[in-house]
Amino acid sequence: MTKRMRFLKILCILSVVPGIYASTASADERYRPVQNERVLGECGECHMAFQPQMLPKRSWERLMGGLGDHFGEDASIDPKTQKKIHEFLTANAADSSWFGGRFMRGLDSNSAPLRITETPHWIREHNEEVPESAWNRPNVSSKANCPACHRRAHLGDYDDD
């Protein structure tokens, strides 16, 4: 191999690497969209049906066990529906796959946050990037209102930040 060819080869590799990196980085905040009709119907009546990959199983268990006082509101549902939703959420939780989801990063092994906004991953992603004033915009009103800024949140796409 001539020197010139070796140089071209290295150049080729170097030009491809950032491309691969960029494509994976841009697809970083993607989650499976919720398609479960029960979850969309029941949870989605009051707030976006958050993707279950955003909390560990133990959080979903705590949350589903306390629907009578759900962040200050009675969100109780009939036992059959509750069981089905519980199954869906825990089966798809952040720690449901062997490699662990993004929302498991930095999470204490015995902590079971009830709010996605209390997870280390959420805090890392929002704290430096989002100014305090953005939370006070009238169309936002709550940190639980993901679609106010992430227009494609319902599709599991949070890349638009």
């Binding site: 989605g44 009546e45 009051c46 707030h47 976006m48 962040f71 200050g72 509101e73 169309n139 936002v140 009103s141 709550s142 639980a144 209102n145 679609p147 106010a148």
Partner: peptide
């Protein structure tokens, strides 16, 4: 509950207007 002192807290005081849940929906 203190978060919901009246029907109108979420539904507005007009039956003809759209309301908003506390989570922004």
């Amino acid at each position: 509950k203190s978060e919901t002192p009246s029907c109108t807290s979420c539904h507005t005081n007009s039956p003809f207007k759209a309301g908003q849940t506390r989570a922004g929906k």
